[in-house]
């Protein structure tokens, strides 16, 4: 049960939503955009999230689109993970998000929610990072489309009041060879200790990671190592772990050491699968 009150709004347009956000913000109501709600409702119960107003963005039509154009797959950020799994034609994304939470939760949990939420794993961003997807963001000045690399650094760098509305994935990249590996503490329904997502484009491996650090990332330096064919898979794996962008996570789910152990193994598997040989 949530013990405190908040206002609830369900705008029909993104313009309306953004305007409302700023208005509520000016009234010091600390508004929150809300899509699937799974994270907000549970954290509000624990008083971890406090808000005076919820702006439910599920009625915004652009956020619910699932469309393929000639050269892109366009996914509304309000689509639930299961809607994407059932409707989208990007196997890597589908396989990755299939690991998030559990099937029932995925009937509510949305793409945008997973990427913009508080939980740091944000696994749905990994295939977007590797395919260099475009993120369509609604703000006070209307829509803008940015490459994920420009706007994602540990988290999505939205300005206050901005909404992630859609993602646009280059279609040709959705057909590339890929590999992903996710490790959990014990059972599958759990947070990832390590999740490696990689694809091979023009003989180069592109990879994104989460679980291992406190945030998801893709790193040019690490990709250099991954693609350094002068090194064995094992050497590359070790080197990657040395070059992580932050300390490895060390928490109730796993120690830093074990995560790094798993990370090395997942990298070796990734290389075996995408580079072959051995």
């Amino acid at each position: 049960m949530i013990s405190y009150d908040f206002e609830y709004y369900r705008p029909d347009t993104y313009e309306g939503a953004v305007k409302l956000f700023h208005q509520l913000n000016n009234e010091s109501k600390n508004p929150l955009y809300y899509s699937g709600g799974t994270e907000i409702v549970t954290n509000a119960r624990k008083n971890v999230i406090k808000t005076g107003a919820i702006i439910d963005i599920k009625a915004i039509p652009e956020g619910n689109l699932l469309r393929e154009t000639e050269d892109a797959i366009l996914l509304g950020a309000n689509l639930t993970l299961n809607e994407i799994i059932e409707g989208s034609n990007f196997p890597l994304l589908n396989n990755v998000i299939r690991k998030i939470a559990d099937h029932t939760v995925r009937n509510r949990l949305t793409l945008g929610g997973n990427i913009c939420g508080r939980l740091a794993y944000r696994e749905a961003i990994l295939p977007l990072l590797t395919t260099e997807a475009k993120m369509v963001v609604a703000g006070e000045n209307g829509l803008k489309s940015m490459s994920v690399g420009e706007i994602f650094d540990k988290r999505l760098k939205l300005q206050k009041g901005e909404i992630l509305l859609q993602v646009e994935i280059p279609k040709k990249d959705t057909e590339l060879p890929y590999y992903h590996e996710r490790k959990e503490k014990q059972g599958e329904i759990d947070y990832p200790l390590v999740h490696v997502v990689a694809l091979k484009k023009e003989e180069r491996i592109k990879a994104a990671f989460t679980g291992i650090c406190a945030f998801p990332f893709r790193s040019p330096e690490i990709e250099e190592i991954l693609n350094d064919k002068n090194l064995s898979f094992e050497e590359r794996a070790k080197k990657v772990v040395d070059k992580l962008p932050s300390n490895s996570r060390d928490d109730v789910f796993a120690s830093k050491d074990f995560r790094e152990f798993l990370m090395e193994r997942s990298i070796i598997h990734t290389l075996k699968n995408l580079e072959g040989g051995i």
Partner: peptide, 8 residues
């Protein structure tokens, strides 16, 4: 199926 504790 949805978890009714996680929605309003």
């Amino acid at each position: 199926p949805v978890k009714s504790c996680m929605m309003l």
